[in-house]
Design a protein around this nucleic acid. Structure first.
Lengths: 228, 228
DNA sequence: CCTAAGTTGCACTCGGTTGTGCAAGATCGT
DNA sequence: ACGATCTTGCACAACCGAGTGCAACTTAGG
C-alpha cells in the first residue's frame, strides 16, 4: 500500500516508442492542433492501437506534453529578479525560442479544452517571472511607462508567440529566430531598437547555445541547415 | 450568359435572418472556432435546418463571413502611402480594433482548413497597405531599421492580433482597446513610447468614431442610406 | 530458449457534426 | 385572402474521431 503503482520498469523499446509518440505529437500538433491520434501514431511509426498502450486518453497525451514542455521551458530561467530587466527579458525570449515546438503546443493546443487549467498552472512560474521582470523594469524606468506591468507582460507573451508562429511557417535560422523573438519582446516593452543590439550581444555572451530540437523526425536525423 | 442567377429579391424577414446568422456566427466563432452550426443557428434564433436555407455548407457560411469581414476592414483604410507613417499605422490599428470580431474570426477560424486561400486573398489589400506604410516609414527613418519591412509588417499584424485576443478574454473599454492596439503596433515598429501620445491625439482628431455593429451586410452594396 | 511485455489488426461501440428529404406549419407580400 | 416564400421538426445517411476487447504475432531480455 505504500505505492499504489509498483511501476515495473518498462521495456527499453517501449520507452523509446513512448518518447517517439511525444516527439511526433509535438511536431504534428504544431501544424494542426487537431491532429488525430491516428496521424500521431503513424508519425511515430506505431499503430493507433499501440498508442493506447502508452496513453489511455488523448487528454493524457496532451497533459504529458504540457508537463514536459513546461518543465523544459521553465528550466534555466533567470534566477528571478536580478540585474538589467532588458537582459532578463532577452534571456526569457531566447529560452522560449529554444523551445518553440513546446511553446506553440501549449499555446495552440492546450489552451482550449479541459487542458486550459493544466496549462495555466504549468506556465505560472514562467508568467510570474515575466511579470516580475517587467514590473521591475518598469519601476526602474528601463521599460515603457504607459502600459501597466501586468498588461505589458501579456502583450510581451503574445508578441513572442507571434514570432514563434512566424518561425513555424517560414523556417528561420536559429540565429535569426532568437534575434526576432528578443527584438519583438524588447520592442513591445518600449526599448529603443538602437539599444537592442547591445542587449543581444550581452545575451549571446551569457547564453552559450541551447541546441535543443525536438523534432528530428521519425527517422531522419539530419535537419540542420542553419549556417553562418 | 446574361445572369446565371435571376436573384429574386428575398423576403424581408429572410434577409434579416440571414444577417442574424452571420452576426451569431461572428460572435460564437470568436469564443469557439469550432462552434457547431447547431449552436450558431440557435444563437441566431433559428433552427439548424433553416440555416441550410441560407448557406448550403458550413464553408459557404465561413466564406461569406470572410468576405464581409475583409470588406469592412479594408474600408476607410488610409488612402495608401501618404503622410506620417506612424499616424497611418495608428489608423490601421484603430480600424482593426473597430472590427475586432471580424478580424479574430479571420485569424482564428478561416486560417485553417480550405478557407486559408480565401482569407489570404481577402486580406491582401490590407496587408499590402500595411507593408507599404511600414516600408515607407522605414525608408523615412520614422520606424526601426533593424528588421526588414516585410517581416516587420507581419510582426505588427501579429502584435495587433495579440491585443485583439486580449480584448476577447478580458473586456476592454473601447478607448483602452484602441489605445492598446495602436500602442502595440507602434511599439513593435520601434516608435519611442513617449511619442505615442502625440500620435494617439492625432489619431483621435482624424478618426471621429467608428460605430461597430456587425450585421447588416448581406452583400448589397450601397444600400445603407442612413445619413447622420 | 522461454516468458512476459509490447505490438498489431480487426471489429466493434459511442458520440458528435454535417448535409438531405419531406411534410406540415407559420408568415410575408400583394 | 391567397400564394409564394420561408421555417420547422423529424428522420434519415454518412463521416470522422475516440476508446475498447480480443486473438495472434513479434520482440526484449533473463
Amino acid at each position: 500500500m505504500s505505492s499504489p503503482a509498483p511501476e515495473r520498469a518498462p521495456r527499453k523499446d517501449a520507452a523509446e516508442n513512448r518518447a517517439a509518440i511525444l516527439r511526433a505529437a509535438a511536431q504534428l500538433l504544431n501544424y494542426d492542433p487537431d491532429a488525430s491520434l491516428e496521424a500521431i501514431a503513424a508519425a511515430a511509426g506505431l499503430s493507433r492501437r499501440a498508442l493506447y498502450g502508452h496513453f489511455a486518453t488523448r487528454d493524457d497525451l496532451l497533459r504529458e506534453l504540457v508537463v514536459i514542455g513546461a518543465a523544459r521551458i521553465t528550466t534555466a530561467l533567470p534566477a528571478s529578479t536580478g540585474g538589467d530587466s532588458r537582459l532578463q527579458l532577452a534571456i526569457i525570449g531566447a529560452r522560449l525560442w529554444d523551445e518553440v515546438e513546446h511553446v506553440r503546443v501549449m499555446a495552440r493546443v492546450a489552451v482550449r479544452g479541459p487542458l486550459a487549467p493544466v496549462v495555466a498552472d504549468a506556465l505560472e512560474p514562467l508568467r510570474r517571472t515575466l511579470r516580475e521582470v517587467i514590473e521591475q523594469g518598469v519601476r526602474a524606468g528601463e521599460l515603457r511607462q504607459d502600459i501597466d506591468a501586468p498588461t505589458l507582460a501579456r502583450l510581451v507573451e503574445g508578441a513572442a508567440l507571434t514570432v514563434l508562429d512566424e518561425a513555424a511557417r517560414g523556417p528561420l535560422s536559429r540565429e535569426r529566430g532568437r534575434q526576432l523573438v528578443v527584438l519583438g519582446a524588447l520592442g513591445m516593452c518600449g526599448l529603443d531598437w538602437r539599444e537592442a543590439d547591445r542587449i543581444l550581444t550581452a545575451l549571446n555572451a551569457s547564453a552559450p547555445d541551447a541546441g535543443t530540437s525536438i523534432g528530428s523526425g521519425t527517422g531522419d536525423p539530419g535537419t540542420s541547415g542553419a549556417g553562418a
